[in-house]
Amino acid sequence: HEITLHINGRRVKLRFRDEKAAEILKEAAKKGLDEEELKKLAEELWR
């Protein structure tokens, strides 16, 4: 699955395995994680 989040006016595509991962990524984006941090988090969730 993929999700596209808008971060600092940019579109960031993240891959994720399940809905739980999608929710975690959305929450992290709301908390203000930047693009690099979100990509790292997405990679961690993928494993």
Rank of each mutant, 00 (worst) to 15 (best):
residue 37 E to C: 06
residue 25 L to K: 00
residue 9 G to E: 03
residue 34 D to R: 10
residue 23 E to N: 13
residue 10 R to W: 03
residue 10 R to A: 06
residue 12 V to I: 13
residue 15 R to M: 07
residue 11 R to P: 15
residue 43 E to C: 07
residue 14 L to E: 00
residue 21 A to R: 02
residue 32 G to S: 05
residue 12 V to F: 05
residue 11 R to F: 15
residue 39 K to P: 01
residue 28 A to E: 06
residue 36 E to S: 12
residue 31 K to S: 13
residue 28 A to N: 06
residue 11 R to V: 15
residue 9 G to H: 03
residue 39 K to C: 06
residue 42 A to I: 05
residue 34 D to Q: 13
residue 19 E to Y: 11
residue 3 I to S: 01
residue 17 R to M: 13
residue 23 E to K: 10
residue 16 F to M: 05
residue 15 R to L: 06
residue 35 E to H: 09
residue 10 R to K: 15
residue 27 E to I: 09
residue 27 E to F: 06
residue 7 I to V: 14
residue 11 R to C: 08
residue 31 K to W: 11
residue 24 I to R: 08
residue 31 K to T: 11
residue 28 A to V: 04
residue 8 N to W: 02
residue 26 K to H: 08
residue 44 E to C: 09
residue 40 K to L: 13
residue 24 I to T: 10
residue 1 H to F: 15
residue 16 F to K: 03
residue 41 L to D: 00
residue 31 K to P: 01
residue 3 I to A: 02
residue 41 L to T: 02
residue 12 V to E: 00
residue 14 L to S: 00
residue 41 L to H: 01
residue 40 K to W: 11
residue 2 E to S: 09
residue 20 K to W: 12
residue 37 E to K: 12
residue 11 R to E: 10
residue 27 E to L: 13
residue 28 A to F: 08
residue 5 L to D: 00
residue 6 H to I: 15
residue 46 W to C: 03
residue 30 K to Q: 12
residue 24 I to C: 07
residue 29 A to D: 02
residue 13 K to I: 15
residue 6 H to K: 08
residue 19 E to S: 11
residue 16 F to D: 00
residue 26 K to V: 12
residue 46 W to M: 04
residue 36 E to T: 13
residue 27 E to D: 12
residue 13 K to W: 03
residue 19 E to T: 10
residue 10 R to G: 06
residue 36 E to V: 13
residue 45 L to E: 01
residue 34 D to A: 11
residue 22 A to M: 13
residue 16 F to A: 15
residue 45 L to T: 02
residue 17 R to L: 09
residue 9 G to Y: 00
residue 9 G to K: 03
residue 27 E to V: 08
residue 34 D to F: 07
residue 9 G to S: 03
residue 1 H to G: 15
residue 26 K to W: 11
residue 30 K to G: 11
residue 40 K to R: 13
residue 35 E to P: 09
residue 22 A to K: 15
residue 36 E to L: 12
residue 46 W to E: 03
residue 16 F to I: 15
residue 44 E to M: 12
residue 43 E to G: 07
residue 32 G to F: 05
residue 22 A to Y: 10
residue 44 E to V: 13
residue 18 D to R: 02
residue 2 E to W: 15
residue 19 E to L: 11
residue 32 G to P: 03
residue 16 F to N: 02
residue 12 V to H: 02
residue 33 L to D: 05
residue 8 N to A: 08
residue 20 K to N: 10
residue 21 A to Q: 07
residue 8 N to G: 08
residue 43 E to V: 06
residue 3 I to D: 01
residue 5 L to P: 00
residue 12 V to Q: 02
residue 15 R to S: 03
residue 25 L to A: 03
residue 8 N to I: 02
residue 41 L to N: 00
residue 26 K to L: 14
residue 39 K to D: 04
residue 9 G to T: 02
residue 16 F to S: 07
residue 20 K to S: 12
residue 31 K to C: 10
residue 21 A to L: 03
residue 31 K to V: 09
residue 37 E to F: 11
residue 46 W to F: 06
residue 30 K to N: 13
residue 19 E to Q: 15
residue 27 E to W: 07
residue 37 E to R: 11
residue 2 E to D: 06
residue 33 L to Y: 14
residue 14 L to P: 00
residue 10 R to N: 07
residue 15 R to H: 05
residue 2 E to N: 07
residue 36 E to P: 10
residue 18 D to T: 14
residue 41 L to P: 00
residue 33 L to I: 11
residue 30 K to C: 14
residue 33 L to N: 06
residue 28 A to T: 03
residue 4 T to W: 09
residue 33 L to H: 08
residue 15 R to V: 05
residue 30 K to T: 12
residue 25 L to N: 00
residue 22 A to C: 13
residue 44 E to N: 09
residue 15 R to W: 08
residue 8 N to Y: 04
residue 6 H to G: 05
residue 29 A to I: 12
residue 14 L to V: 06
residue 1 H to Y: 15
residue 44 E to Y: 15
residue 6 H to N: 14
residue 12 V to C: 04
residue 10 R to T: 08
residue 23 E to F: 09
residue 21 A to S: 15
residue 37 E to T: 10
residue 17 R to K: 10
residue 16 F to Q: 01
residue 27 E to S: 12
residue 10 R to Y: 04
residue 42 A to V: 04
residue 47 R to P: 04
residue 8 N to Q: 08
residue 17 R to D: 02
residue 29 A to V: 10
residue 4 T to N: 06
residue 35 E to F: 11
residue 1 H to T: 08
residue 27 E to C: 10
residue 47 R to C: 08
residue 5 L to C: 05
residue 36 E to M: 13
residue 21 A to V: 05
residue 22 A to G: 14
residue 38 L to S: 01
residue 39 K to A: 07
residue 12 V to T: 03
residue 1 H to E: 08
residue 10 R to D: 03
residue 26 K to N: 06
residue 45 L to V: 03
residue 15 R to Q: 06
residue 25 L to M: 05
residue 22 A to F: 10
residue 39 K to Y: 15
residue 39 K to M: 14
residue 24 I to E: 07
residue 36 E to N: 11
residue 28 A to Q: 07
residue 15 R to G: 01
residue 12 V to G: 00
residue 40 K to D: 10
residue 23 E to C: 07
residue 33 L to V: 11
residue 41 L to Q: 01
residue 33 L to S: 09
residue 13 K to A: 06
residue 17 R to S: 05
residue 35 E to S: 07
residue 13 K to N: 08
residue 41 L to V: 04
residue 40 K to P: 01
residue 37 E to G: 15
residue 24 I to M: 10
residue 21 A to W: 03
